[in-house]
Design a protein around this nucleic acid. Structure first.
Length: 420
RNA sequence: GGAGACGUCGCAUAGUCCGGUCGAGUGCACCACCCUGCUAAGGUGGAGAGGGGUUUGACCCCUCCGUGGGUUCAAAUCCCACCGUCUCCGCCA
């Protein structure tokens, strides 16, 4: 939810933001109109209610014999109040509905346009040169007996898999490395619930355009999370946070579930795009003033991970039209995937400014009263990283060199050797 | 799954039986000031959240007692449903 105050005082800023996303500009005017209507009905209801309250006191204080007459008068007033209240409620609801369709106001500098209009901020590291035909991650993993797609499909269907042997260890090692880095940076580790209530899913902004992506359990009215961002954003819902000692930083490890509806036939080979994977996610609550600086820090920690793992990458500033509705800016770090001859997203970090927090009621104390905090999130490691890791560090015989940073987490192993 | 108890403005509690004086009391913690010869004690006062209005005044009004409905002129209080917590029993990893 955007700031209603901003909508009122500078609707042009909101219009410009919607424009750069390719989203509805008309929604801004509809929201303004609904706001005016809402305030008018609220004022009317409150006027009548005040009258009723005053009347109630007279009834209570009246002598017994006068009461009956007074009560009769009060009855018609009560009916009026009820009607006015309903009108006010409806107007409020209309306003909220329209407001929900307006995406977060993008930060100046974010490139306008759609998916292909991203801006490359930098490219880091040397792309590997092979003196042989590189194998793709699945071929390598099968040689290492690290991934079993066939049996994953047998047990759970397409886009499911078993991580096995060094595959399983590799994932745990990645998560552990990421967690240790997060701990060094002062994050609090968290293992959150992965089933959440509708209002939490709604509050994080995922029930809008991502609704098709989400697994839902109707018998229990619970949603499976696609990222621990969801429970981490819900963690402090409806709370007033004390940020005087600095931001609250959480590193959440969880399994993530995605339906991948609408991506049929895309990335069908291996574990690049799957229904279930693990992810270590950074999530930060901070002040709006600190948000952009924190965003850069999150990006820095992400780049540090890729650098430690010897993965060449580029950083892109995602275009406005490709941002989620909650994000005001998003940076993706994409690793080079040799057999695809392209960069693929390994991490993503979003600055949601106060958008999520306003929906979820996460506030902090301000000079006068409270004000919503800013929330940010960013990936520190996921199952997908195995793809880039295997392909980048492969050798001609199908073995894979283990980057030094990862060795302590693999019992000192410096090379993964094929078993077949 | 069965039975029972409970849910009050940070925490702990009073109030609910019997609707209006609850515009929610008290203790602790908190903030400001005062007093006092020490990191103590005492005194005075203040202090919640959301929203609307506004002559923009430190002012006025509305809403909030787990959530949502209902009854009533009037609900923390009565009725219904739901959610959550705790205890006991049963079942199970």
């Amino acid at each position: 939810m955007i700031d209603p105050q901003l909508l009122r005082t500078s609707p042009d800023a909101v219009r410009a933001s919607q424009e750069s996303r390719g989203a509805s500009v008309a929604a801004v005017d509809a929201a303004l109109e609904a706001d005016t209507a809402r305030r008018a009905t609220i004022t009317e209801f409150e006027r009548l209610r005040a009258e009723q309250n005053a009347f109630g006191k007279r009834v209570a204080a009246a002598a017994k014999e006068d009461k009956a007459a007074l009560v009769q008068q009060a009855q018609s007033l009560a009916a009026e109040v009820k009607a006015a209240q309903q009108e006010a409620n409806e107007a409020e609801q209309r306003f909220t509905e329209i407001m929900r369709t307006i995406a977060n106001v993008v930060i100046p500098g974010v490139p306008a346009g759609g998916e292909e209009n991203f801006e490359v901020l930098r490219e880091v590291g040397e792309r590997p040169q092979f003196g042989f035909a590189p194998k793709d991650h699945l071929a390598l993993a099968e040689g290492l007996d690290a991934i079993d797609m066939t049996r994953g499909a047998k047990v759970s269907g397409a886009r499911f898999y078993f991580l096995k042997g060094v595959g399983a260890r590799l994932e745990l090692a990645l998560m552990s490395l990421g967690l240790d880095r997060a701990l060094e940076a002062g994050f609090t580790p968290i293992i959150p619930p992965t089933l959440v209530k509708p209002e939490i899913m709604e509050g994080t902004g995922f029930l809008g355009e991502h609704a098709d992506e989400i697994y839902y359990l109707p018998a229990d009215d619970l949603y499976l999370v696609g990222t621990s961002e969801v429970p981490l954003a819900g963690l402090h819902a409806d709370e007033i946070l004390d940020l005087s000692a600095g931001p609250l930083r959480y590193a959440g490890w969880s399994t993530c579930y995605r339906r991948e509806a609408g991506s049929y036939g895309k990335d069908t080979r291996g574990i690049l795009r799957v229904h279930q994977f693990n992810k270590l996610e950074m999530f930060v609550y901070t002040t709006p003033a600190e948000a952009e600086a924190e965003h850069q820090r999150l990006l820095g920690w992400q780049e540090g991970m890729l650098q430690s793992l010897g993965l060449p990458y580029r950083v892109i500033d995602v275009a406005a039209g490709d941002l989620g509705s909650s994000a005001a800016r998003k940076f993706d770090v994409e690793a080079w995937v040799p057999t695809q001859d392209t960069f693929r997203e390994l991490t993503s970090t979003s600055n949601c400014t106060t958008f999520q927090a306003r929906r979820l009621g996460v506030r902090t104390r301000a000079e006068s009263g409270t004000s919503p905090v800013a929330t940010l999130n960013g990936t520190l490691a996921t199952t997908r990283w195995i793809v880039a890791l295997l392909e980048t560090h492969q050798q001609e015989d199908g073995s894979v060199l283990v980057p030094e940073a990862l060795r302590p987490y693999l019992g000192g192993m410096d090379v993964l050797r094929p078993v077949r």
